[in-house]
Each structure stands twice: as structure tokens, then as C-alpha cells.
Amino acid sequence: MTSLLSLRGVLRAYRGDAAPFALEVPAFDLAEGEVLALAGPSGSGKSTLLMMLALAAPPDAAERFDFAGQDIARHWKMGRGDALADLRARRIGVVPQTGGLLPFLTVEANIGLTQRIAGRTDADRVRLLAEELGIAAQLRKRPAELSVGQRQRAAIARALAHRPALVLADEPTASVHPELADAVLALLKRECAAAGAALLVATHDPARAERLGYPVLACRTHAPGADGIARSVFERLPEIAEAA
């Protein structure tokens, strides 16, 4: 399989829940169409890693950071904000924790938003996704009129509407009922597989992810050393990736 994401020696410092943390990614690869759950306790840097992978936050240091054949580390270094925005628009779909729908747009417009930003308007795909995710009847409504589960499904549809290469979901089950959590994870996996998109899900519930067929990459955490900085390491060696 072709590598969609390839990171080597990536570092990013951030402030965790209690103490300063340093996120380290010695090696991380993700192939096209691959599915993976990132697991770790709260504050372990899962969201920070997703932000970097979503090209929304720069690494402090990176030996290599390639995405879809482009040198992301160089884009950040050269301040190519528009190039990064274009990559986010065309190649990446995101599912934030609570959906992140815009309250002033209808559900249909929210789903179609990624298409419009990417310049790939396709009303039929919006309707098809809505039907598959069981929210076709909600298309004319505003997000405030939807239940939490419906909002998450609308966010999944939005993340897939513009046919991205990679879908990133940050704790998509954190605010939903446990029964709904299984449904959300299963829907994400099924729709990404149907769309041929790779899927990365950050979760604090690796058991649920495993049960639903997600390979899980757990982070290793290290207590603060002499410098007072705790470390969180996400490592996925190529052979492991290939095995997965």
C-alpha cells in the first residue's frame, strides 16, 4: 500500500492537563485507506497529534512530515498557509468531538460546506451520505434542532462529502451515549471504507475501538524527568504498519 502519512522524528511541546508535555512521534506511517485508532489517557496528546496530522498545527521539529506526497514540514517552515489550507480543503476530513457544525447553516449546507470549500460541489453525494447515515429527513434543519447523535452523523457526512484521502476524528464518541458510541465508530469505519479514505480516530476507549475492528495504537507516557516535562510517545514502525 502507498503511504499517505509518513512522520519521522516529529516533536511538539504542549501544555497538558497538569504539567508541560512533549509529544514525540519517532516514526508514524499510515497507508491510503488504512484505519487506526489512537489511544491514550486524557491529556496524553492524542488531540495534539491529530491537530498536526490535520495540518492545523505545526510541529516544533520534524525530520520528515509527508502527507499525500507533499513535504508538510517544509510548507510550515516556509509559511505556506494557503498551500496547507488547500490540502486541508481537498484531502482531509475532520470530525470534531461534538460535531462542530456551523449553527447558522442547515444540515445540508453544513455537509456540503467541505465540498464548496474544496470546489467540488455534488448535491447528490450530500443526499446519498445523508441517506446512508440516516439523517436524510434532517437536511433542512439547523444543527440546534438535532440530537447529539444526529449531529455526529452530520459531521461524519461533512468529513466525507468532498471525498478526502484522510478522515480524522477526535474523540467522536466522547459526548454520546455508550450505545450510540458503537454506532458512531462503526459508521465512521464503514463510510470511510466505502469512500476509500484512511481513518484515524483518537479515543480514550481503546477496548470499544478494538471490539469494532479498529487496530489500536496506544501511546507510551513517561513521567516528568529532570526537566519537569512529561513525555507522550506515539510510535508506529513501518513493519507494524505493514502488519496492520
Binding site: A56, A85, D86, R88, P103, I117, A118
Partner: peptide, 14 residues
């Protein structure tokens, strides 16, 4: 700010 950040995350240019 949240909406604007989301639009930026979805790829809207500066």
C-alpha cells in the same frame, strides 16, 4: 472564534 477556526480547519483560506 470557534466557527471561524472550524472554517479554517476545513480549508478556508485566510
Amino acid at each position: 472564534r470557534r466557527d471561524l477556526a472550524l472554517l479554517s480547519l476545513l480549508g478556508l483560506r485566510r
